[in-house]
Computed example of a mutant assay.
Amino acid sequence: MNDFTLHPQLEADTHFVADLALCSVRLMNDARYPWLMLVPRRADIREVYELDSHSQHQLWHETTLLGELLMQLSDGEKLNIGTLGNVVSQLHVHVIARSSDDATWPGPVWGVGRPKAYDNEALTTLIDTLRMKIAELPTYSF
């Protein structure tokens, strides 16, 4: 049985986009960067190695699919992927498309400046676009 619940901080900082075979796809509420977060829907998981082998493969597959999609939609120059978890220990993967003209290039996005929330129209448009593109992705799992 899987008693997955999303950590309250992740809930507060992100917007739901879609569910994939393993992960909930969330949009970080920071319009400075094209930034998705993937949260495996498994209870009490803090680290990738705590997932079974099948789920580890699925996590990487979903991460790379969403990374490629985000790069295409944003015309990014570099894809940043990270699983820091220093503030929120629940396993989550940050997928961020970076550009040399973004707010903190070439430095990290964490802890620099203040997040800029999306306005309602931009948020709705982006989430609708992401959902449409995600629906077109291959649906297989490992």
Rank of each mutant, 00 (worst) to 15 (best):
S89F: 05
V87I: 15
W105M: 10
K116H: 13
E121V: 11
P108F: 09
G107D: 14
W110I: 02
A117D: 15
S99V: 00
P108I: 12
M132E: 15
Q90I: 01
D119M: 06
R131Y: 04
Y118L: 13
R98G: 04
L91M: 04
D119K: 07
P115W: 06
W105V: 12
G113S: 02
I81T: 05
K116E: 15
V87E: 11
G85L: 06
L79K: 07
A117L: 14
G82W: 06
L126Y: 05
S100N: 11
G113F: 06
S99Q: 13
V109M: 05
G113W: 11
R131D: 01
E121N: 08
I127V: 14
G113Q: 07
D119Y: 08
K116M: 14
G85Y: 09
P106L: 08
L84H: 00
D128Y: 01
A103Y: 11
L84P: 02
L84V: 00
S100Y: 05
D119S: 06
N86D: 07
T125I: 14
V93H: 00
L123A: 08
D101E: 09
W105P: 05
T124I: 00
K116N: 12
Q90N: 06
L126Q: 11
P106H: 10
W105T: 13
G107S: 09
D119I: 06
S100L: 04
P108H: 04
A103I: 02
N86C: 12
T83R: 14
H92Y: 03
T104I: 02
D128L: 07
S89M: 06
T129Y: 01
T83Q: 15
N120G: 14
G107V: 09
S100G: 13
V88S: 13
I96Y: 03
T104S: 15
I127P: 03
L123H: 02
T129W: 05
A122I: 01
D128W: 00
D101R: 11
A97R: 08
K78I: 06
V88I: 15
W110H: 05
V88D: 13
L123P: 01
G85P: 10
S99W: 03
K133L: 01
W105Q: 14
N86A: 09
D102S: 01
E121I: 11
N80Y: 14
K116L: 15
H92Q: 05
L126N: 00
P115N: 08
M132G: 02
G107L: 13
R131M: 06
S100M: 12
T124V: 03
R114N: 14
G111W: 07
D128V: 00
I81E: 00
H94V: 05
V93F: 07
P106K: 06
P115V: 08
T83D: 08
V109Q: 10
N86G: 04
A117K: 13
G85T: 12
L123E: 07
G85H: 12
T83P: 02
L84C: 02
K133S: 07
Y118Q: 10
D102Y: 01
V93E: 04
T124M: 10
V112H: 03
T129V: 09
R98A: 02
R98T: 04
G107C: 07
A97T: 06
W105L: 11
Y118K: 12
W110M: 02
T104K: 08
W105I: 14
T125E: 15
I127A: 04
S100F: 03
L130Y: 01
D128T: 02
D119R: 03
